[in-house]
Design a protein around this nucleic acid. Sequence first.
DNA 1: TATGAATGAGCCTTCATTCAT
DNA 2: TATGAATGAAGGCTCATTCAT
Lengths: 190, 190, 190, 190
Amino acid sequence: MKPKDEKKVEAIAAAVYRLAAGKGLAAVTLADIAREAGVATSTLYVYYKSREDLLDDVYQKAKTATVTRYASDDDPKASLKARVRRIWNNIVDNRIENRQQVAFLEQYYHSELLSETSRALGQRMSAPFIELLVAGQRSEQLKTVPPALLAAAVMGLARETALLVSRGDLPDDETTRANGFQLCWDAIRA
Amino acid sequence: MKPKDEKKVEAIAAAVYRLAAGKGLAAVTLADIAREAGVATSTLYVYYKSREDLLDDVYQKAKTATVTRYASDDDPKASLKARVRRIWNNIVDNRIENRQQVAFLEQYYHSELLSETSRALGQRMSAPFIELLVAGQRSEQLKTVPPALLAAAVMGLARETALLVSRGDLPDDETTRANGFQLCWDAIRA
Amino acid sequence: MKPKDEKKVEAIAAAVYRLAAGKGLAAVTLADIAREAGVATSTLYVYYKSREDLLDDVYQKAKTATVTRYASDDDPKASLKARVRRIWNNIVDNRIENRQQVAFLEQYYHSELLSETSRALGQRMSAPFIELLVAGQRSEQLKTVPPALLAAAVMGLARETALLVSRGDLPDDETTRANGFQLCWDAIRA
Amino acid sequence: MKPKDEKKVEAIAAAVYRLAAGKGLAAVTLADIAREAGVATSTLYVYYKSREDLLDDVYQKAKTATVTRYASDDDPKASLKARVRRIWNNIVDNRIENRQQVAFLEQYYHSELLSETSRALGQRMSAPFIELLVAGQRSEQLKTVPPALLAAAVMGLARETALLVSRGDLPDDETTRANGFQLCWDAIRA
DNA sequence: TATGAATGAGCCTTCATTCAT
DNA sequence: TATGAATGAAGGCTCATTCAT
């Protein structure tokens, strides 16, 4: 709760990402985390009051970092398509470069451990993106369907594209990204 | 190992779906499954030699049923678009109607417990669908991108659509399906 | 809760008595009990659902046995003094002969673990004794003070006498008992 | 080891009394004591070299204070009965007024943690009382039984009386004390 | 086949104690 | 002196699995 040694907190988070991606979040024990982070198991309790607390904090850290990356280099003055592409690319890149973090995030999200606070965090952080899409609808550049559907399409296609790259089914290059975004844009544009 | 009583085996599978959807696969114990299926815990070992074995078998059952549902009512003589729409609809319907089974499937898929055999099963079963898409590319109706990307787009958009419905963000009606498929088709068509 | 092997249940209770008397109830771990009873620690959970449950059950067993011993050989037709002496003797004998059980009983009684049920049990079992004393008051053989005080005097003096014997401060013979009861009787008689 | 700040030492002792009476000595942790005393846990080690040491010191403090209270207002020139009554009253009053301290004392006494030194302390402090009783025997006012039995009777009856008052079974008034001492005196007098 | 009893391994958590500041 | 950080040891409890009937 009141972390003193920031380095240790980060080592713990990193350990969680690595382990969750490696053996599945459910199989990650506190002993695993401690070993991987280079501290004693009981030391984890100096920083967090329970396993649940620890994971929730790591989740919030990761979620915030992820969403921040999604929005990076967004240029409000660029065209709608350019801005969506920027975000789409960020999502794909993040999923490929921070594979372990993403693996943890998805597993935790589906693990019924998600606290209400954490769930709200996700909503709040994606709000600007939704607004961008709504603006696109107003200027008649995007399909007139529930915005949530447009957002889901963008996220879903980025997700699938990154997955194919991570699995080795597609090369990690510009062509793949161009193809993927082409599908994405055609899906949502008016 | 050699299931005799098919009724019991099905009760076990049903128990697993229900429990996994309810409290998360990781939290499901053999005692839970046995109780829910109406047998003694040790009886599970009469049918399976380990927890892993049990889950893997249930997975294969569910996976097969799911893929079968995907292909149901496919009319080889219909137009490409109609056939894809049929499949897309089947996927969406299945995800909504068999929520518990799908929940189990996804959790198990991401749990690193998936045996090699089971992984191959997934590949094998989706082969006909890939072929359909390749045919569509040959007739220049679909984009000339790696077929896996097209398949991923269809599956991904169906998944996202069903998710929005399950969450209550979108109504479970024809309009939702029409909108969803519109995005899907625009994404993949040439 | 649903003991099958009565022998094991008794071995567990005996282990608790021995250990509580030896190292103090608070220091008795489930591992200790299991080792002493010749079973695995987890086996204890076959019989009881928690440590608290186990101790409470053992307590009720011991309490019942103890109170039964207090009342043994009571002759309703004997004189009041003879009957009180009988009971007093039983208490002293029990405290000396079943030292370990008594040690456990006293420690548990003062340990804030005592369930409401168990507390009520104690009250209920001592009721006949109180009635005997009240009858003694009615026949003007005993002092006219609150019966609870008379009961406490009898119990207290038996307790102290047994304690002195157990400690070796007094010999374990008839003289000690005669002296002790003399004090007891003089204390309560009218 | 070498207590400097007497205030802190007393705060610690007071914390122990309160906590032991409240949740049972066995459940009292050093963290509890520290919190209740307003210091850091590790600070306790500035004053004592171990938990055992701390409790033993607190015990000796409490024991000394208690025995001192027993002897307070003793008038060597008063009659034997008056002197015994004085002491008996002091014991009862102490048990009622210093409930928490007494609770700690009894729990610690039965916890097998009692050091040899502390055990001897108890003996030493009750010596004058034993001498008083022996003098009473010599003047043929008290029964000719082992003095330890007389002492035990006085202590035991005081204990039981105070217990009944603490429990609310008897009122905390002069009548209760008069009745109680009547039993006590009849028990020991010749 | 079906099951209740039994268990070893392991998990989360607590706590007295030590260390560094 | 005083304290927050760190930890090893241990405890209660769960669970997949085996055994005996």
